[in-house]
Design a protein around this nucleic acid. Structure first.
Length: 476
DNA sequence: AAAAAAC
């Protein structure tokens, strides 16, 4: 199978070849001919299957005829998150090198001015998250009656995020004569209803569901005490003990925990970045970019990074917290072991996680194996105080199990406290212009890092990367 | 107990 048999234009084929691709993936081979025939397409595919190129390549081919008019984009692609939208833009830039496409990215968190300019100039391709798109529409800056191709990507995720009413509204604003390409990893009933309403005689292209537990991913769980500082110590131990760690994503359930953990790892001189939805857009983009380029080895992230992000090779995934929804576990560990590469996923489990762990084991259809000693779920997991009173023996046993180094490690910073000198610090992330602790400024090191790639002085991180959202709000 | 997304 080769790209040349799919009906793509010469210019597109040249760009694909220049990118080094020779063989289409299953979803590309299945969907591209239908798109070029102007059929509606229902694509059922996970991320990491080459889904994006399955619509961008034929779209670029189709866009060769005709030209955009001011404020009337010719095509519209809806994405659930800003990062995914930006990723699709990258895709158009890469495969559209031989074309003069006007591509406009309409996402929140950035100024309207440039987006307006691009709309005014006439966009061949409009890539948007629903909120910002509707915002532009309501301001009258955008006319949707010229849209010829509508792409709805990651529909099931849009559903999870409550975007379906917005999607329905947008669909109704676009002429009935359009071509619609609809992608979803799963087909829950609400999504089925949506496709029944908005697709006309679609060609259904389904690619085998990537097995939830890719054989190339080694999955393990590691026990820790439930206190945050204990979990952070365990995480450092896991990172330092990891074999062949090239780069890693560390998932936390909550944004504030992303922030706290990020600061803690900076203090411990890891090469680390953070990513969550409350960070300003510029930081989000730069963090992700630096992580992709390898400037940052460890990315602490919320579930904003769990799905869809195209980070080609992550050697390790760590779950600082077990995800609340077992399904999210699958998405998180799907960040590693991609494209047949080896990957390792290690999750920290505490006495409070019994139910979450059960749910995950059920979802993946096997029992996760422990590294080190397992958590004793039969032990009471009430508040620490009551446990101390009721089961002193158990507690002492736990303490003696801890290594000396761990025991000596004072709580780096409790979730609710801040290290000295950073009292006024915002949640996320640390601001380097304030005085960081001596170690983070490259001062005396108490323990010599053994791996230069994973450990690094934090002082190189550009200040704007470490700025938090509130400054933006204050400046208004 | 969460996160994501418009201002």
């Amino acid at each position: 199978m080769s790209f040349s048999t799919l009906g793509l234009s010469e210019k597109v084929l040249a760009a694909v070849e220049a990118s080094g691709y020779t063989e289409p993936t299953a979803i590309q081979a299945g969907a591209i001919p239908y798109v070029l025939e102007r059929r509606d397409v229902l694509g059922i595919a996970q991320t990491g299957t080459g889904k994006t190129a399955s619509f961008t390549l034929p779209m670029i081919t189709l866009l060769e005829k005709g030209r955009a008019r001011a404020r009337m984009p010719r095509t519209l692609i809806l994405e659930p998150t800003r990062e995914l939208a930006a990723q699709v833009e990258d895709n158009f830039n890469r495969y559209g090198v031989n074309h003069k496409l006007n591509v406009a990215l309409l996402i929140g968190g950035v100024s309207f001015a440039e987006q307006d300019r691009k709309l005014e100039r006439g966009a061949d391709v409009l890539i948007a998250t629903p909120g910002r798109l509707l915002d532009h529409f309501e301001r009258g800056k955008l006319l949707l009656q010229g849209v010829d191709i509508l792409v709805i990507d990651e529909a099931d995720r849009m559903l999870d995020m409550g975007f379906i009413p917005d999607i329905e509204r947008i669909c109704k604003l676009i002429p009935f004569t359009r071509q619609t390409l609809f992608f979803s990893a799963t087909m829950p009933s609400e999504i089925q209803r949506l496709t029944d309403t908005f697709l006309q005689n679609p060609a259904k292209v389904e690619v085998a569901k990537a097995s939830t537990t890719a054989d190339t991913v080694t999955q393990r769980i590691a026990a820790a005490e439930p206190e945050d500082y204990e979990k952070r110590a365990k995480l450092r131990e896991l990172i330092e003990g990891a074999e062949d760690l090239q780069n890693a994503i560390v998932f936390c359930n909550r944004k504030r925990d992303v922030a706290t953990l990020f600061r803690s790892l900076v203090r411990h001189e890891f090469s680390v970045g953070a990513l969550h939805g409350d960070m300003d857009q510029r930081s989000r983009m730069t963090m992700l970019d630096n992580f992709k380029k390898g400037n940052i080895k460890i990315l602490v992230a919320s579930d904003v990074a769990a799905r869809g992000l195209d980070i080609p090779s992550v050697s390790h995934v760590f779950n600082f917290d077990l995800p609340i929804q077992a399904e999210d576990y699958v998405h998180r560990i799907g960040r590693t072991g991609r494209a047949g590469r080896d990957g390792t996923a290690i999750s920290i489990v505490t006495g409070k996680d019994e139910k979450a762990l059960q749910a995950i084991n059920e979802t993946i259809g096997k029992e996760l194996e422990w590294v080190g000693e397992p958590v004793d779920f039969s032990a009471p997991v009430e508040e620490k105080k009551s446990r101390r009173r009721s089961t002193r023996g158990q507690k002492d046993k736990n303490r003696s199990r801890k290594s000396k180094a761990e025991a000596q490690e004072a709580p780096v910073q409790e979730a609710d406290s801040v290290p000295a000198g950073l009292e006024e610090q915002p949640m996320v992330p640390m601001h380097t212009e304030r005085r960081a602790p001596a170690r983070a400024r490259g001062g005396r090191r108490t323990n010599q890092p053994k791996d230069e790639a994973i450990f690094r002085n934090a002082s190189h991180i550009p200040a704007f990367l470490l700025r938090e959202t509130r400054s933006k709000v204050q400046s208004r």
